[in-house]
């Protein structure tokens, strides 16, 4: 075993509480033979990531989870969430929350933007903790493998939407709805409350495209603000019972609209339930 893997093992043991660390051994994971899955996911690295983000989850953002009983214990499903926050803090906290709220723990496989694999270190690290580049082929593979897939249909515009447009869903991609119909899997709407205020953007460099990035956001603060985050899971939407033809663009758009409305409603509910930012 390499030094890095040995260090990782010790680190996750050190950073996680014993119950969480023990639960990791029953993590649902398809080993392709050398301790990684075919897309590069590494349970050891995932354990380290859970340990490293523990402080952020428990102390800094003090994440509370609502409706986690709606997460399926097994089988493929799509989590569709609102997106915000310069760096994907929302994505990280959903992944940690899903792993903590499910037993045995499940990994929410995040569909990241296509430029992520081009970024040195970031691409490799993300793939080890379960993020995959947002291609249709990768998405299909995850669903066929019975994975829980986390998508942000707003995409990069969601991250750069700016403080004034917080909690206003941006242009909503439809790929997740098409695949939900094609593979007959439920879509679980997710709303993250708090992340849209956590790291306000004061501007952005639209001409910055290093490694394929769409822009470079300029944050108002050097670190995200320690606002409380609330993760809300909605009722699973069984789209394939209402919509049939996954090849019909109108049907797919309608199905995606249902998901968008459900996320919107969940955001409204989350905002009304929230008792202060901090």
């Amino acid at each position: 075993m390499s030094l890095a893997r040995r260090l990782g093992k010790s680190l996750s043991k050190l950073l996680l509480d014993p119950r969480q660390h023990a639960a990791l051994s029953s993590l649902a994971f398809r080993d392709a033979g050398h301790g990684f899955d075919v897309l590069g996911f590494d349970p050891e690295a995932f354990g380290v990531a859970l340990g490293v983000t523990r402080f952020a989850y428990e102390r800094y953002f003090r994440v509370t989870s609502h409706g986690a009983e709606r997460l399926p214990r097994s089988g493929a499903a799509i989590l569709a969430a609102n997106h915000s926050g310069l760096l994907p803090i929302d994505g990280a906290m959903i992944v940690v929350d899903v792993a903590r709220q499910t037993s045995p723990p499940r990994v929410a496989r995040v569909i990241g933007d296509v430029f992520i694999p081009m970024m040195p270190w970031v691409g490799t690290t993300f793939s080890r903790i379960g993020v995959v580049a947002g291609s249709a082929g990768n998405f299909r593979h995850l669903l066929e493998s019975g994975e829980l897939v986390l998508v942000f249909p707003e995409g990069a515009p969601g991250i750069g939407k700016g403080f004034r447009r917080r909690y206003q869903l941006q242009s909503w991609r439809v790929g997740h709805a098409e695949l939900a119909l094609r593979y007959r899997v439920p879509v679980i709407p997710v709303a993250v409350i708090g992340a849209e205020e956590a790291w306000p953007e004061i501007g952005r460099l639209d001409s910055f495209h290093a490694f394929g990035a769409p822009f470079l956001p300029i944050p108002a603060t050097p670190l995200p603000l320690p606002v409380r985050l609330h993760v809300h899971y909605g009722e699973p939407l069984v789209l394939h019972e209402r919509f049939r033809d996954a090849d019909d663009p109108g049907t797919v758009r309608d199905a995606a609209r249902v998901v968008k409305h459900a996320v919107d409603a969940l955001i409204a509910q989350g905002l009304s339930q929230r008792q202060g930012l901090w």
């Binding site: 075919v38 897309l39 995959v132 580049a133 291609s135 593979h141």
Partner: peptide
């Protein structure tokens, strides 16, 4: 292609 699928099918 980093924008393509990691798992290559015959149609890639």
């Amino acid at each position: 292609d980093p924008r393509g699928s990691t798992l290559l099918s015959e149609d890639d």
